[in-house]
Design a protein around this nucleic acid. Structure first.
Lengths: 163, 163
DNA sequence: GTTCTTGCAAAACTTTTGCAGCAGT
DNA sequence: ACTGCTGCAAAAGTTTTGCAAGAAC
């Protein structure tokens, strides 16, 4: 049994457990998300699926289902420094490395250690429930292109194809 | 000389050094940002200033100037898990703790240690230029209110006053 | 058969941009 | 005087929502 099949299995169980229906769009969107390793935006997933296998798929459906996956714990929205939501399947804890020139985001499975002192919760009064580390940098293909001083929105907006 | 005056001094020098004009709006917006410790959104800053001291101020001006401050190194846009940009003055390195119920963001000056292994850059090929750690949790006032499963946009949208 | 989901279109929300008039240099 | 900045309004980009038709249970 492949890893992907196992994940789809988990999806189906989790959907059932939370009283959601199993639809072909749900399985398709989740499968595509699980297969990708580049933390796609909702629109990127939508474009891929629409082009490759479901011309009638709607972007709204992609958004709705990504949020369903979040609610049942099988997807996570990562706040990326360009202001768009990027999604991944967070079953193995990891951190992220974001390219400030092209917006690419890759996993860091190790090489980084985050330690939270036990007294942090006492001092702040917060109950800490999650850790989200985003390293910023420049990916190999972008090393050589001009630098941007501003990440938010402008720097990494994708070029619209004039189709 | 107060800390705030020193920061304004630095702002003026940095603006001059980068060929930008010194305007009353710039000083006002920066002063308000430097004084606040809660990582306001552009709109939150705008509302405060418009209400308290500059009824004619425009939101576009706030955005434009926050980006000017970013470019000259005196402000930073923090990608918050609710999908809006939050700004702070990053002259002292620190991390952030985000409340997943109300969207509040507070500084963590210590209590967290992030270590990046030297070989991370070799392995990924990235040139790492920045670190952005956001811990997620529940702030004291929110402990007791119902939990949200979804951070992005919906969970923390501010209530519009029906003025 | 009932309830939940989809796809479409429209709305909502945040951020950016064009431009005429004004302020800073 | 010249250049750059402001404020307004409109546009752009992303995400959400209302609703009728269709699919899942």
């Amino acid at each position: 049994m492949t890893n992907e099949e196992m994940l789809v299995e988990r999806l189906i169980q989790a959907l059932r457990a939370h009283g959601h229906s199993i639809t072909s769009q749900r399985v398709m969107i989740f499968r595509a998300l699980a297969r990708r390793r580049d933390h796609p935006t909702a629109e990127a997933l939508y474009e891929q699926l629409q082009r490759e296998q479901a011309p009638d798929l709607s972007l709204a459906t992609v958004y709705k289902n990504l949020h369903v996956f979040e609610e049942i714990g099988l997807a996570r929205a990562v706040a990326s420094p360009d202001g768009r939501a990027r999604f991944d399947v967070p079953l193995v804890p990891h951190h992220h490395l974001f390219c400030t020139r092209c917006g690419a985001m890759v996993d860091i499975d190790d090489g980084v250690r985050v330690e939270i002192e036990p007294h942090l919760e006492e001092e702040t009064g917060f109950r800490v429930t999650g850790v989200e580390l985003v390293l910023e940098g420049v990916c190999p293909p972008c090393q050589g292109k001009p630098a941007k001083t501003r990440l938010w929105r402008q720097a990494t907006r994708s070029v619209r194809s004039s189709s």
